[in-house]
Design a binder for these strands. Structure first.
Length: 263
DNA sequence: CCTATAGCCTGACGGC
DNA sequence: TGCCGTCAGGCTATAG
């Protein structure tokens, strides 16, 4: 579920396992996630180096190298990280693999080839290239900024929250949760939102992301009041007990409660 | 600026 | 059991 909370959990996992170790070798199992660069360049840039620290912007994870530049990871729809020792335990669907001099490994596990691995020098330049909006989870992301970003927009609230160029980090699943907590219909146009509802959406955004991270992005640990565990056909609304509805908005599958989330 | 659609990928799942 | 269609949390391009 690689949206902002998931990537933040991966970041902390990487911090806890994979820093300050010499990189002996790197394997790239598909060129399709390299965005124009080559396996040789990635290998040359990582061999005999070490990972020193991490950062994150939206759904992108940045890992600083000991000399200069960053390793960038994006997890697409199915990416995950696994740190392990025994080479026999290499996870199925490993697409990118770092082998450390201490014999441990860090694998980017990704059944579909929809992610990204790249080496860059300048993080801000990369963010600009990708035209990413401000990270939703950063300290400076307050209500005034949120409101300003939506100013003059006419689109539906759900795809607006998910638009990485407006603000970075929210995806399909967590936008459902945010709108459920705010009790706002996903198709409501942004310019029809009154101040009070806008504030509710902002607060829900902060609460949902914070809680999801705190719960390690594990749906089994999510509060009983959340809709995510009920995001399935025939699911029941945790608020009113009614049936959860599934519709399509901007080509994405949306789950919401028609009774609790009026237009 | 905004929406819908298709495509990129490939595994999981449900129905027959 | 096996085959087939559908769907899935990402992003991007294109047309209207």
């Amino acid at each position: 579920m690689p949206e902002l909370p998931d990537v933040e959990v991966y970041r902390r996992y990487l911090n806890a396992t994979s820093l300050h170790q010499g990189i002996r070798d790197v394997e790239i199992r598909t060129d399709q996630i390299l965005e124009g660069t080559s396996p040789l360049k990635i290998k040359a840039g990582l061999r005999n180096r070490s990972l020193e620290s991490t950062d994150r912007h939206g759904k992108f994870l940045f890992v600083a190298l000991d000399n200069q530049g960053w390793l960038v990871l994006h997890f697409g729809m199915t990416g995950d990280l696994k740190y392990y020792k025994n080479p026999i335990k290499e996870p199925e669907y490993t697409k990118f693999l770092i082998e450390y001099t201490n014999d441990y490994h860090l694998a980017l596990v990704m059944p579909r080839k929809l992610g990204l691995v790249r080496l860059i020098l300048d993080m801000q330049k990369f963010i600009k290239e990708k035209e990413l909006g401000p990270d939703v989870y950063q300290d400076g992301f307050g209500y005034e900024m949120f409101k300003a970003l939506l100013e003059g927009r006419r689109g539906m609230i759900k795809p607006t929250l998910m638009n990485q160029q407006i603000m970075a980090g929210i995806g399909n699943v967590y936008s459902d949760e945010i709108l459920f907590q705010a009790r706002v219909h996903p198709r409501l146009p942004v310019d029809q939102l009154q101040e009070e509802r806008l504030r509710k959406i902002f607060k829900a955004t902060k609460d949902v992301l914070e809680t999801a991270i705190q719960k390690k992005a594990d749906p089994e640990q999510f509060p009983a009041s959340w809709i995510i565990p009920h995001r399935q056909k025939g699911g029941e609304c945790p608020n009113c007990g009614g049936k959860v509805r599934n519709i399509s908005v901007s080509g994405r599958s949306v789950y919401y409660c028609p009774d609790c989330q009026p237009t």
